[in-house]
Nucleic acid binder design. Structure first.
Length: 582
DNA sequence: TTAGGGTTAG
């Protein structure tokens, strides 16, 4: 947590430009600080500065030094709140140590307000071209805090600007951001892969290995980027990165293989799932429950409930020959040739002879709540509502504490009932869960909101929103997006706007779905001008990126009314921005 | 939150 001076920048030709630039800035800026006249000072270093300054300047320096000293004291005592107040009370820019420590402590608090404060310091420094005053440690922590709060755009922009300036973030910092990006929607996974590449490229440019020792990717970092590849279905990229792990002295671990299971599911290669399990056992990597969980989830995703049930049943019976059971459930679909080559490298065991005796689990695993809930989701998705409810009953009465229904289980049942329009029964389950001592959460209520909206019962939806607040559950963007969409269903664009404004008034950040849904409300009600206004707001909001859906909604608003000229104009504007219609 | 059971658009 201590503030360190910026790491020595790399010396390769590409980055040396930044290097010199960077250094010039550092020395001149410390001079500027000590200058009150605004004229360039002849002083060359802080060391001999006091000799050549005037008396007034010396007094100013003293005042500033003492202010920095009080700030540093507060920071040392971890009085972050007081430190922040002191910072805001003075127009003087604190020294690099204080600024970095303040950013570190604010980032470490992991609260929205602390993050906003840290960001405001960065914004000020950026504006005053003093960003280099912050060390790599504080910027890295800020990036992690931003990523954790869901602001992955901000987090990756901080990291990118660090890399541009020759700063190398700690592996824990940059990999945390890669991990968040990988799991976030939109372009997140692509950005994760890009970020991973920029970091490793920058690392390679440093001639001295000692300088990059804390920034090199570890297995966790690889797992994060592999997860991004899995989410994208980028098999070849996955293999490349997987292949370079040994060169980077990283061993694949159980998570790496769990991510591989996800990749197989994503690219619809059900036939490969069993080979991943066999490979894990063959490499004697300790198996964990989540691997089996991932397998069941994958089969459920494929709609192969029989295979999922077979695993669960085998586990209930305490069997260890899961591989054998899964081999029996493998279908004989013909896989893609190119993909096969890739997987022969990832999973050499796909080519083992057919009389190969698959390995046994080294330990017995029992199905838990999560696994049963996954199976339940399968029933829900295939419309087997009776089985969903029956499963809940079985879990309640079974008496096994590791598989008792929890809030997600009940929420799944609520969701299943909402999906078939059985709102009264969904309500009953909500009551039942509360009686059983399981508290519904925001997701449970969001599903209920969705149900009332779908039933065009907006008043009931509003009541549910109140009920939510009364139980101490704050609505989020999803709650409001659902309600805005509900207003569209009853042709109430004014109501949609009211919800949108209510959301912003509550400090809930609109997502791009909020913007596009509100645009849709105005578009379908024949108010393209208003849709246009929302679009402009969206462009101004740094938290969201205008995407193709937003452009389409904008264009559609005009086309719907036969206003082809403005529609064409929008298409041109869109092309100029580098977005192309599909 | 190094993955992982439940929710929102088009």
């Amino acid at each position: 947590m201590t503030a360190k001076p910026p790491p020595p920048p790399p010396t390769t030709s590409t980055l040396s430009h930044h290097h010199h630039h960077h250094h010039t800035l550092t020395s001149t800026t410390s001079l500027k600080l000590f200058t009150t006249t605004g004229k360039p000072s002849p002083i060359k270093s802080a060391g001999n500065s006091s000799a050549s300054v005037t008396t007034t300047e010396a007094t100013t320096i003293q005042r500033r030094n003492s202010s920095d000293e009080s700030l540093l004291n507060l920071l040392r005592q971890r009085k972050t709140e007081d430190a922040w107040l002191l910072y805001t009370q003075s127009s003087h820019l604190p020294n690099p140590t204080c600024l970095s420590r303040l950013i570190c402590q604010l980032s470490y608090q992991n609260t929205p307000s602390a993050l906003t404060r840290a960001q405001s310091i960065v914004q000020r420094l950026r504006h005053e071209r003093q960003l280099h005053r912050l060390d790599a440690n504080s910027l890295g922590l800020l990036a992690v805090a931003a990523a954790k709060s869901g602001d992955t755009l901000y987090a990756s922009s901080i990291l990118k600007s660090m890399l541009r300036s020759g700063y190398l973030p700690h592996v824990k910092a940059w990999s945390a951001v890669v991990s968040r990006l990988a799991a976030s929607g939109d372009d997140g996974p692509k950005e994760a892969v890009k970020l991973f590449r920029s970091v490793t490229r920058t690392i390679r440019r440093f001639p001295d290995p000692a300088m990059v020792v804390n920034s090199r990717p570890d297995t966790a970092a690889y797992n994060a980027v592999l997860n991004a590849c899995a989410n994208l279905g980028w098999t070849e990229k996955f293999r490349q990165l997987f292949d370079e792990m040994p060169e980077s002295k990283c061993e694949p671990d159980i998570l790496t293989y769990n991510v591989m299971i996800k990749l197989c599911a994503r690219i619809e290669r059900k036939d490969l799932l069993v080979f991943v399990l066999e490979r894990i056992l063959e490499k004697e990597i300790p198996l964990c429950m989540t691997t089996l969980q991932s397998l069941v989830a994958s089969y459920v995703g494929f709609g192969d409930l029989e295979a999922a049930e077979r695993i669960v049943q085998a586990m209930r019976e305490g069997r260890k020959d899961l591989c054998k059971i899964l081999r029996e459930s493998s279908s004989d679909e013909i896989p893609n040739e190119n993909e096969n080559e890739v997987f022969e490298k990832l999973l050499p065991n796909v080519n083992y002879p057919s009389d190969y005796e698959p390995p046994l689990l080294t330990k017995v695993f029992h199905p838990n709540t999560r696994m049963y809930t996954t199976l339940m989701k399968g029933y829900m998705k295939s419309g087997r509502i009776t089985d969903t409810v029956r499963m809940l009953e079985a879990m309640r009465t079974q008496g096994d504490s590791a598989s008792r229904p929890d809030h997600v289980t009940y929420t799944t049942v609520v969701s299943a009932l909402v999906n078939v329009g059985a709102m009264d029964k969904a309500r009953q389950v909500l009551t039942e869960m509360i009686r059983a001592g399981v508290q519904p959460n925001r997701v449970t209520y969001n599903i209920l909101l969705k149900g009332y909206c779908q039933q065009l019962q907006l008043d009931r939806a509003r009541d549910a929103l109140k009920e939510m607040a009364d139980s101490g559950i704050e609505p989020d963007a999803v709650s409001y997006n659902t309600l805005i969409d509900g207003c569209i269903l009853v042709d109430d664009s004014a109501g949609a706007l009211v919800f949108f404004n209510e959301m912003r008034a509550k400090g809930i950040a609109p997502t791009k779905i909020s913007y596009t849904t509100l645009m849709k409300a105005f578009s379908v009600s024949g108010q393209p001008k208003l849709a246009n206004d929302v679009f402009d707001e969206m462009e101004k909001d740094p938290r969201v990126k205008v995407d193709l859906v937003a452009w389409n909604m904008l264009i559609e608003g005009y086309s719907r009314l036969g206003m082809l000229d403005p529609a064409k104009e929008m298409v041109e504007r869109m092309k100029k921005k580098g977005v192309y219609p599909m």
